[in-house]
Design a protein around this nucleic acid. Sequence first.
DNA 1: TACCGC
DNA 2: AGCGGT
Length: 206
Amino acid sequence: MEVQERILDTAFSLFRQYGTRSITMDDIATRMGISKKTLYAHFVDKDDMVVHAIRRYLEIIQEEERTIISKADNAIEELFEIMNMMDEKLRNMNPVIMLDLQKFHSRAFLVFQEYRNSSLRTTIRTNLERGIREGLYRKDLDVNILTQFRIASAMVCFQPEVFPMEGYDMGKVQRVLLEHFLYGVSSAEGFRLIEKYRQQQLSLNK
DNA sequence: TACCGC
DNA sequence: AGCGGT
């Protein structure tokens, strides 16, 4: 792996736990056993590093989503796989990171908004359309409204007032909300499939 | 690693 | 004071 990528992965693993504000460039350099000079050889400043760290994280998620979507047999299997993937991606994530981006790293915040408004929206909408086509979701769904709702629901885990880090794991929150959404959009046939995948999950975790 | 300056 | 930046 390239040095930049290793720096970004180290930085992001710290940012996701503590937010960007409380992590210093010294922390990152120390953690990697390199000097700050090396950090500044690869990134113009901290803000630039935050932008790249967020971008990389989102690109990895999108890449994994593409793979899942192309492999999944149907919309429900797709959602289950995305749920497992996001569980890991959001585990131990501190919701303050979003406030830090909003307040101190507006460029990185824009990168996230761009992801939310294009990639995430498309993934959600396409999954709904797929499920309806496959007869696994109800035919009378309002795809527009439900897409908007699902985006909002995915964002609620970043509100520390609603889900403070003490007591709630972001990955778990996302999983529970997504599963709840899935039950809400499913047809009778979809419902049976959900039960089947849930059984499979249970036997896998043993 | 020491140091500056915001 | 402590942290970004040199």
